[in-house]
Amino acid sequence: MDDPIVIENLTKDFNTFKAVDSLSLTVKRKSFVGFLGPNGAGKTTTIKILTHLLSASGGRACLNGIDVTKEPKKALASVGAVVETPEFYPYLTPIETLQYLGSLRGMSQEYIQRRTKEVLETVKMTEWSKTRIGKFSKGMKQRLAIAQAIIHEPHVLILDEPTSGLDPRGMVEVRNILKELREGDYTIFMSSHLLNEVQEICESVALIDRGKLLAYGPVETLVDGTGSKDIDLKVVQPLDGYMMDRISHFEGVEGIATEETRHYTITFRGKDEDQARLLTDLQTLGVKIVSFKEKAMKLESLYMSLIKDSR
């Protein structure tokens, strides 16, 4: 059986600007892959090519073994997608919208009715199922967008920043829906620039910048490979020069910087046991600690270092 998503040497040029640069990536069946990168990295362009919203300048983008750039109708048959924040036809209700899109996909009326009920329950839109979409909030539209993407129970789900533009409540709601979908028989490829979102939901992550793939693998494997992390240290009394010097020579410490009075950042490389030993060493040195915690998420450290290296 073909891998659900196979991207090979994909390239997209906008005149002289290379939005996607020989990108190659394979998404395995039943995985949930986060597609991370800064603004303008090429995430949305890649997703638009995968969903036939843009043409490719070169390379291949296969969905279930079918090249979407050559046979889009066949390739998109078993794919559900939410790209950017789609708008809906304001004169249709959610039920009518799902009937329309379900019919285009060849679903029977009976199947559409059953699935419409199920997906509207999944995205918590049952209450609004017969209301015209015209006056729906962005969050409601985004939930409906997810509903239309899964109405036909696709093998592959492609999501482009599904929580973008939503208020905190809307983001939580959409993330909860995605977590539910993770339990289903879906292969999900989701772009995002929200690191916490990707770390919370995705199993694997593909990091991209300037159209090139920087890293790809399971989240745990990638973040464990970085080692380096920032530790936020708050103390009762300011550290003197002697203490600063001693700390900078502790095992695993790559540097210590003063943020403000009694507030420091220690750049540290090591595993959890090493980090625990650092805390003990600080206390042994006589530092009166108010708080000692990882300043940034591990994925963020990886992200920042890779993005920095690529520029």
């Binding site: 969903t51 036939h52 919203l53 998109l76 924040t85 789609p86 899109l101 285009l104 239309q148 492609i158």
Partner: peptide, 12 residues
């Protein structure tokens, strides 16, 4: 932007 809803469907 309704194209974002319609065009990713398997329809020419």
């Amino acid at each position: 932007r309704t194209g974002y809803l319609l065009f990713p469907n398997p329809v020419k």
